[in-house]
């Protein structure tokens, strides 16, 4: 799936918030078709890192490239163009409450990309079908389940033709029985070669689909490697210990 074309390069990102150093000199590279997973204890800086990557939180220091182009945050038009190419999926969906599913997906096409309504709606329709919601286009967010809302938000991001997706714990606000439908959609994206970086604690998903795991703690990436390398019970990695803990907790909650 992965080739060596660089899609996104993040170099030496640092961020202070509320007098504390939240990110310390974080760097990573994302190649075409790659799925990188961010994992680590709560407060480790995963969300902050993802939001720094598309400048929802402006980093204090560091540089970001999309392909060959370095992003200059002060050039507004460049920033808006960059954000259109880097989709973001939020933990709590953040759908637009006043728009139905179809308009949620098509509004950015119409108002930001200035695509004619008819074409934008056709495109939105295709994306909603792709996430299995072709029959829910006229429903409003309040009429959708959590899993459906998250799938609409994925369709909304996909409609922009992003070169990469940032996903911040896309399933952690969902009831257990709804997690599968969202992970299924993301799995299909991974298999279709979408480039993604995703914060998640879904171990089964990570084991089978992640190309690379980044273990984040106290604002730094302290371990990095393939699932095979890091999750092997023998190797004594921090990642392995953390995941064993997660497993224990989920076993307890199930029994």
């Amino acid at each position: 799936m992965t080739d060596q074309t660089m899609v996104l390069r993040v170099e030496n990102i640092s961020k202070r918030l509320g007098g504390r150093q939240i990110l310390k000199d974080v760097s990573l590279e994302l190649h075409r078709g790659e799925l990188k997973v961010l994992i680590g204890p709560s407060g480790g800086g995963k969300s902050t890192l993802l939001q720094c990557i598309n400048f929802l939180i402006p980093p204090d220091e560091g540089r970001i490239w999309l392909g060959e182009q370095q992003i200059e945050i002060h050039r507004k038009q460049d920033l808006y163009a960059y954000r259109q190419k880097v989709g973001m999926i939020f933990q709590d969906f953040n759908l637009f409450d006043h728009l139905n599913a179809l308009d949620n997906v098509s509004i950015a096409l119409r108002k930001v990309k200035k695509i004619a309504r008819k074409d934008a709606e056709e495109r939105a329709m295709r994306e909603l079908e792709r996430v299995g919601l072709g029959d829910k286009t006229t429903l409003y967010p309040s009429q959708l389940s959590g899993g459906q809302k998250q799938r609409v938000s994925i369709a909304r991001a996909l409609a922009m033709d992003p070169e990469a997706l940032l996903l911040d714990e896309p399933t952690s606000a969902l009831d257990p029985e709804l997690i599968g439908e969202v992970l299924g959609v993301i799995r299909n994206l991974a298999q279709d070669g979408m480039t993604m970086i995703m914060a998640t604690h879904q171990l089964g998903f990570i084991r089978t689909l992640a190309d690379d795991i980044l273990f984040m703690q106290d604002g730094q990436i302290i371990e990095q490697g393939s699932p095979a390398e890091l999750l092997d019970a023998e190797n004594g990695s921090r990642t392995q210990a953390f995941c064993a803990k997660l497993n224990e907790l989920s076993d307890e909650s199930e029994t």
Partner: peptide, 23 residues
Amino acid sequence: IRRGQLLATQALGFSSMQSMLWV
């Protein structure tokens, strides 16, 4: 209005004026 929706518009590449007007 939930701040998350503003974040969502920014993440989609809306300018401040566009998010104001359409969301």
